[in-house]
Amino acid sequence: MPRPTRLEQFDPGDVCIVHVVQRCVRRAFLAGVDLVSGQDYSFRKEWIRRRMEALASVFAIDVLSYAVMSNHLHQIVRNRPDVVAAWSDRDVAIRWLKVFPGRRIDEHLAEPTENDVIMLVQDAERLAEVRKRLSDISWFMRALAEPIARMANKQDDCTGRFWEGRFKAQRIVDEAGLLACSMYVDLNPVRAAMTETPDASPHTSAYDRIEGELGKEIPSAAFDLVPIPTEQAGKEMRETPVDELRKKRKAKKQNPSGRRVRRDSWLAPLTMHPEKLSADAEVHKDGLRASDRGFLNLSMRDYLRLLRWTAQQRVDGIVAKIPTSLGRTLSDVGIDASMWRDLVWHWQRYFGKSSCAGRPDTMRAEAERTGHRWYRGQQSASACFVS
């Protein structure tokens, strides 16, 4: 089956959930301990996490789950054209210019001014295109990957690729697939034998949520979403030495808004609220993420209980009986509890080569929608689900 086009998998104009995998070139450990030189590049995982956090504050993209590994990155994201539609023209212009400020005399001065914002707002055609891009997963990934590659190449004093190329996208078509995929992503460090539990797995959404529940705070990486007055920008360029401007810009990047926030505040909330109207975009107002909409009909307590239980089932063929309450949770979304461990730990076996993941019936419906006869994994995964 030929590789599907991006537009076939997700449309910036439609809300959809996508599992994204981005690998380092040659699958080298460019964000871990290099196997040849022994050099430890693990600190780059925090670069990636902070860049995701920053982009979550400006794009109409909800980050549901993520895991930054030594040689690849997993994310589950949901694009939100309904959220970007609720932003004013000025909001759209500021957000876009914070990420893509355009050409400047010096890169270190790349802060949008009031005049830049006004000019973009007045260009209706350009603004409409920008508004569309802010809910486009491909543009989100571009804004994530390029700066990381540049920073790593500058540090290593080299040129060339950091990332393998085109990211892999897998559309998640129902809640059963989303729950299993989210657990698979959160347990990546445990599966790789890097850690024993999700509680000890930094640079994952599970770790951030656990730390957030404990009240842990971090300096926010969110953009401040305030343009510089044009006169002030001109005065700084004329009167401030270039080296001083560079230092000021670098310091601001560490904490653009000057706030400390809960560690998980940039992630989409886990639990959906049934009392909310389905048409309500639940736009986030505090400048940390796109929306306040959850993604699972599951409490944080139950999610973490299931996650920790699943993490303990390491040995194939030796699986403890799943607690009754957790079994009911799985049955409610159509998953066979006896196959749960196998589905999560061997996600790649079932869906690794598929561009779509979920229950067989919803995968079949998605195949019909996109003009396919079937998707890989549709038949083999059927044993993991119940009618």
Results as ranks from 00 to 15, higher is better:
residue 3 R to P: 00
residue 5 T to E: 10
residue 7 L to D: 13
residue 14 D to Q: 15
residue 14 D to C: 12
residue 35 L to A: 08
residue 38 G to E: 06
residue 43 F to C: 07
residue 50 R to K: 14
residue 60 A to R: 06
residue 61 I to W: 08
residue 66 Y to Q: 10
residue 72 H to Y: 11
residue 80 R to C: 09
residue 90 R to K: 14
residue 92 V to E: 03
residue 101 P to K: 06
residue 114 E to D: 15
residue 117 V to E: 02
residue 117 V to D: 02
residue 120 L to I: 04
residue 125 E to D: 14
residue 125 E to I: 00
residue 137 I to R: 06
residue 140 F to T: 02
residue 156 D to Y: 01
residue 158 C to P: 08
residue 184 Y to N: 14
residue 190 V to E: 13
residue 192 A to Q: 09
residue 192 A to V: 11
residue 195 T to G: 02
residue 202 P to H: 06
residue 202 P to T: 10
residue 214 L to M: 04
residue 215 G to R: 04
residue 221 A to C: 05
residue 228 I to K: 06
residue 232 Q to E: 11
residue 238 R to W: 01
residue 239 E to H: 10
residue 239 E to P: 13
residue 241 P to W: 00
residue 254 Q to T: 10
residue 259 R to M: 09
residue 264 D to R: 00
residue 266 W to C: 11
residue 270 L to K: 07
residue 274 P to Y: 11
residue 281 A to S: 13
residue 284 H to P: 01
residue 288 L to C: 10
residue 289 R to Y: 07
residue 298 L to I: 15
residue 316 D to S: 11
residue 328 R to H: 13
residue 343 L to P: 00
residue 346 H to L: 01
residue 358 G to Y: 10
residue 363 M to V: 13
residue 365 A to Y: 10
residue 370 T to P: 08
residue 372 H to M: 03
residue 373 R to C: 00
residue 374 W to Y: 13
residue 374 W to P: 00
residue 377 G to Y: 05
residue 378 Q to E: 14
